Computed example of a mutant assay.
Amino acid sequence: MTRPLSSIERSIQNRIGWLQEEERKSIESRGEIGRMEFWLRVTRTEISREVKAGRGDAVTAFTLVCRLFKLVLEKRQAGDPRLFDHLMQYADTVLKQHSPRS
């Protein structure tokens, strides 16, 4: 027998459901571009919350991630897909291990 969810657990579950539904709607309306735009909006909101909470290093972290991604794309465009492949593999591994959306 399972116990009822606490209000915090229900809130987390509802948030995950909302994220999944909004991502699905974004994909239906604009495809992968819609998915990307959705996650950029969600991330921007989270970064704003972090800054308001006094954790401005979130801006620095996001900037570094963007710079890394730009570098990886440039390397792939130059004919070396290894960094892109490694980054995609690492991102997939981390999300599978830590994402509550699984």
Score class of each variant (00 low, 15 high):
E32W: 14
E32S: 15
E32I: 15
E32L: 15
I33S: 08
I33P: 01
I33K: 10
I33N: 07
I33D: 10
G34I: 01
G34S: 05
G34N: 03
G34R: 01
G34P: 02
R35H: 04
M36N: 01
M36A: 05
M36C: 03
M36G: 03
M36P: 00
M36E: 03
E37S: 06
E37L: 09
E37Q: 09
F38Q: 02
F38P: 00
F38L: 01
W39T: 06
W39E: 09
W39L: 12
W39A: 07
W39R: 12
W39Y: 14
L40D: 12
L40T: 10
L40V: 12
L40G: 04
L40N: 12
R41Y: 03
R41E: 09
R41G: 03
R41N: 05
R41W: 02
R41M: 05
R41Q: 07
R41H: 04
R41S: 06
V42A: 15
V42K: 15
V42E: 14
T43M: 14
T43H: 11
R44M: 04
R44I: 02
R44Y: 04
R44L: 06
R44K: 06
R44V: 01
T45I: 12
T45F: 14
T45R: 14
E46S: 01
E46K: 01
E46M: 05
I47P: 00
I47G: 00
S48G: 11
S48K: 12
S48V: 08
S48R: 14
S48Q: 12
R49C: 04
R49H: 05
R49A: 04
E50Q: 11
E50Y: 04
E50T: 03
E50D: 09
E50I: 00
E50C: 07
V51K: 01
V51T: 04
V51L: 03
K52P: 02
K52Y: 10
K52R: 14
A53T: 06
A53P: 04
A53C: 06
G54I: 09
R55M: 10
R55N: 15
R55L: 11
G56C: 05
G56N: 08
G56E: 10
D57I: 05
D57G: 05
D57R: 07
A58C: 09
A58Q: 06
V59E: 13
V59R: 13
V59Y: 07
V59D: 08
T60N: 12
T60S: 13
A61P: 02
A61E: 14
A61D: 11
A61G: 05
F62C: 08
F62K: 07
F62G: 03
F62D: 06
F62R: 09
F62P: 00
T63E: 12
T63Y: 10
L64V: 08
L64H: 14
L64S: 12
L64P: 02
L64T: 10
L64D: 13
